[in-house]
Design a protein around this nucleic acid. Structure first.
Lengths: 253, 253
DNA sequence: TAGTGGTCTAGACCACCGT
DNA sequence: CGGTGGTCTAGACCACTAA
């Protein structure tokens, strides 16, 4: 391990790029996370333990974990250890839902209602985004989010059928907490990052009914593709947001 | 400097919070940036030089600069040095303009046309956001961004009058490159970060004419407050985006 | 008190850039 | 080649948590 090797992943077609030791260590730890060596919410081995195991210095392991923490794969807690990130407990799921009350601060308690959940053949656009073959099976979910019994977000969600076998409306209704928490503990699919494309659209009649707005009303359309380890897309989502008392919030660093 | 002091800034009302050495060093470097010790685009002193100057180890300076680089205040270039970030050269100003072509990739060459530039008393809402007294002077700018001669973004911009004394329509028209580049080199105001609130709205008649759309058409409304050092707000901006062939792009980490 | 992450140091060496 | 940032090490000590 100490020969400071070049190119930890020679399968990539890039130039013979150099990979520092801490990045290789990061890769090893990531593989452990992916393989489920430690479950979400559990602690991973201590930095010294990992350093010994991999035969490198503690500072090198530290730098690897620094990056994992920056990517939210792992959470450090001083004096306690380093823990596998989870979509449960994790205070506020507002990491992925960027909706804020106009006054500022997060919207209050959220009510989620499943309107539909069935299997179908992936529409071409969805298949493309999920990197599936055209017509492959997907799970389709339609749900409505309300705040203070005010319908606010109508979400259409597509998931690869192969990864979400037993997913039914009953299972969704029975579950509490965030959807991504369910996906994580019931299907072993961890959502890591996402990219969103946002547009303004007019409410069509069907949507208008669901969201209790006048047809033609401007809505925020948020198209999301969500990725798990190794940048594999595992969810496509199209949300329509009523932005009367709420807005989509973003920070530009 | 080596007594590992507590609370570098005792004026804050917070708990007697502990401030590690590297953070104090970061503060010193930040003050240097703010004071203009090194101009945008120039190199700051080397890590070893700064370490000697502050009487700490090079690793400590390094960690300070790590954070500054993460906040985009500074840019590292291996083998060359560390440079003060600038809104000029800096490849692509798409750090603050999150507009993308629907096919993917950035919109092509941008045409900016100044429609208005005058001084006025700050509207209450703008005054509040800029932390000015009600009625204080602000510079108001209205401009239109077009891509391939297709009007796409209508921006209303408010700036504190005190900071932007000689700013006129002529000066704006004469300048090339991004607005924030002009603000930086002509007025010494560096935009560091911003927060945006996004809604869907209907085009009112006046706006519709400017953007060549039918009145009532849904538009993306992007309200931005931009900050300089020490989180001082120095710009309020309200943009209306036509999202037919473009969209607002966002990454969720 | 023992164990964990967090800070700091001093020194070695590597990768990259300009001259 | 010399100078810069980038990596890696080994060891010391501090801050926090839980038993």
């Amino acid at each position: 391990m100490n020969d400071n090797g070049r190119d930890a992943d020679p399968t990539r077609g890039d130039a013979p790029t150099f990979s520092p030791l801490y990045r290789q260590i990061k890769g090893l730890i990531t593989r452990g996370l992916q393989a489920g060596d430690w479950k979400p919410g559990e602690a991973i081995p201590s930095e010294t333990e990992l350093a010994a195991r991999f035969g490198v210095s503690q500072g090198t392991v530290r730098k690897a974990i620094d990056e994992l923490a920056a990517e939210n794969l792992v959470v450090r807690r001083q004096g306690r250890g380093t823990f596998v990130a989870t979509h449960h407990e994790e205070r506020a799921q507002f990491r992925f839902l960027r909706l804020r009350r106009d006054g500022g601060g997060d919207p209050g308690p959220m009510d989620s209602r499943i309107l539909e959940c069935r299997r179908l053949r992936a529409p071409v656009e969805v298949a493309r985004l999920l990197q599936l073959r055209a017509g492959e099976a997907v799970v389709f979910i339609r749900r409505l989010l309300s705040f203070e019994s005010r319908p606010t977000v109508l979400d259409d969600i597509w998931l690869p059928g192969a990864l979400f076998r037993g997913l039914t409306a009953e299972r969704l209704a029975a579950s509490v907490g965030p959807l991504y928490g369910l996906f994580e503990s019931e299907f072993g699919v961890r959502m890591i990052r996402a990219s969103e494309s946002i547009r303004a659209v007019a409410a069509d009649p069907e949507v208008a009914v669901r969201l209790s707005v006048i047809p033609g009303r401007p809505l925020l359309q948020v198209e999301r593709v969500t990725f798990t380890y190794e940048d594999r897309p595992v969810e496509v989502r199209r949300g329509l947001y009523v932005t009367e008392q709420f807005h989509y919030f973003n920070e530009l660093g």
